[in-house]
C-alpha cells in the first residue's frame, strides 16, 4: 500500500515586496514527514514552527521551494492538485454570505455529485459534525467552534483518503472537542489518514498514533503516545546526585540520575514529603523537588528543549 503522504526535506520561504525591498521568512527548512494509511499523525510544535505552512503545502495550496511531496505514491508537478486530500483551515475561509447548508452544497457540487447524492452527503456531513440544527445559519454568524465543525464537514463531503486539519480542535467547547475527536477516530477506523496540527496535548495523546514535533521549520523528533505510562516521578535537585542515588536505592531501587538531577519513581505508599524527609535524614541536601508525570506534555518539553540532532529519532 502506498503512503498517503510522504514529505522529504520540504523547504518553504515566504517572500514579500519588490526588488531590493524583498523581505523573506524561512518557514520550512527541510521538514520530513510520512503518514501511513489509517494513521493519525499529530503535529506539535511552538507557534511559528511551520506546522500550518506544512499543511498548506501538503494540501497542494502552497508550492514548496525544495524537497519532494508525494500523495498516495504519486508526485504532482509544482502546480498539481493532490486528489482525495481534504484540508481544514485554522480560520474561516468559506463564503461568509452562504448558509452552512448552502456552503456544503457548494462544495458537494464541486465534486459533481448528482442532486440526490449531494443532498444525502450534505445531510450526513451536518449530522456527523453535529450541525444539523445550525444548517440555516449564515457562515458569518458562526462561532469559532462552529466554523471548525463546518471545516470538518466540508472536508469529509468529498470522501477523502487523507485529511489535513490545522488547529481544528481549538475554539471548540469541551463537548465539541469530544465530538470531533470521536469523528476523527471513526474516520481513522474507516481507513482515512489524518494529519492533525494541535496544541491540545490531551487530545493528541488520546488520538494520535504518532506525534511529529516540529521546531524551526524542521522535524525535531517523534513521539509515540502509546509508550506514555502516566507514571509519576519525583525530581530532586541535590548535591552529588550520584552519591544520593546510591544512598536512596536501598529503599527505592528505581532511583536514577538524569541530567544532574535525582529521579525517584513515585510508587504506591511513598509520598513526595516522605521521600524528601528520608533523603535529608541520610544527609542529602535537597534544594528543590518537583513531581513530573510521564505524559505527552513532559515528553514534549523534554524533546523541544533538546538540540535537533539529539532529538532526531527519539521515540
Amino acid at each position: 500500500m502506498t503512503q498517503p503522504l510522504r514529505a522529504v526535506a520540504i523547504t518553504k520561504r515566504y517572500r514579500a515586496g519588490f526588488g531590493s525591498f524583498v523581505s523573506s521568512v524561512e518557514a520550512l527548512r527541510g521538514l520530513d514527514l510520512e503518514a501511513e494509511q489509517g494513521e493519525l499523525v499529530g503535529l506539535l510544535g511552538p507557534n511559528g514552527a511551520g506546522k500550518s505552512t506544512f499543511l498548506l503545502c501538503a494540501a497542494g495550496l502552497l508550492r514548496p521551494d525544495g524537497g519532494t511531496l508525494s500523495w498516495f505514491g504519486e508526485q504532482r508537478g509544482p502546480l498539481g492538485r493532490p486528489h482525495g486530500v481534504a484540508y481544514v483551515p485554522e480560520r474561516s475561509l468559506y463564503h461568509r454570505f452562504l448558509t452552512v447548508r448552502e456552503a456544503l452544497e457548494f462544495y458537494a457540487t464541486l465534486h459533481e455529485l448528482p442532486g440526490r447524492e449531494r443532498a444525502a452527503r450534505v445531510s450526513a456531513a451536518l449530522e456527523r459534525v453535529g450541525m444539523t440544527e445550525h444548517a440555516t445559519k449564515r457562515v458569518s454568524q458562526l462561532s469559532r467552534g462552529m466554523v471548525q465543525r463546518l471545516g470538518v464537514a466540508q472536508a469529509i463531503i468529498g470522501r477523502p483518503r487523507l485529511v489535513l486539519l490545522d488547529e481544528t480542535l481549538s475554539g471548540l467547547d469541551p463537548l465539541g472537542v469530544r465530538e470531533i475527536r470521536e469523528l476523527l477516530v471513526e474516520l481513522r477506523e474507516e481507513g482515512v489518514t489524518i494529519v492533525l496540527s494541535s496544541h491540545d496535548l490531551i487530545s493528541l495523546e488520546h488520538l494520535a498514533t504518532r506525534i511529529v514535533v516540529i521546531k524551526d521549520g524542521r522535524t525535531h523528533g517523534t513521539l509515540d503516545p502509546r509508550v506514555l505510562t502516566g507514571a509519576r516521578t519525583l525530581v530532586l535537585e541535590v548535591d552529588s546526585p550520584s552519591l544520593a542515588a546510591r544512598l536512596v536505592q536501598t529503599r527505592w531501587p528505581g532511583a536514577r540520575v538524569e541530567g544532574e538531577r535525582l529521579h525517584i519513581p513515585l510508587v504506591a505508599g511513598a509520598s513526595q514529603e516522605e521521600i524528601v524527609a528520608h533523603c535529608r535524614s541520610l544527609g542529602v541536601a535537597v534544594h528543590s523537588s518537583s513531581v513530573r508525570r510521564d505524559d505527552l506534555e513532559q515528553r514534549f518539553f523534554d524533546l523541544i528543549e533538546r538540540p535537533a540532532r539529539v532529538a532526531e529519532g527519539c521515540t
Binding site: 492538485r81 468559506y94 462544495y107 465534486h111
Partner: peptide, 12 residues
C-alpha cells in the same frame, strides 16, 4: 479571503 483555496481542495 480563502474560498478559492478551499474550492481548489474540492477539485475546482
Amino acid at each position: 479571503g480563502g474560498p478559492y483555496a478551499i474550492a481548489f481542495t474540492h477539485s475546482c
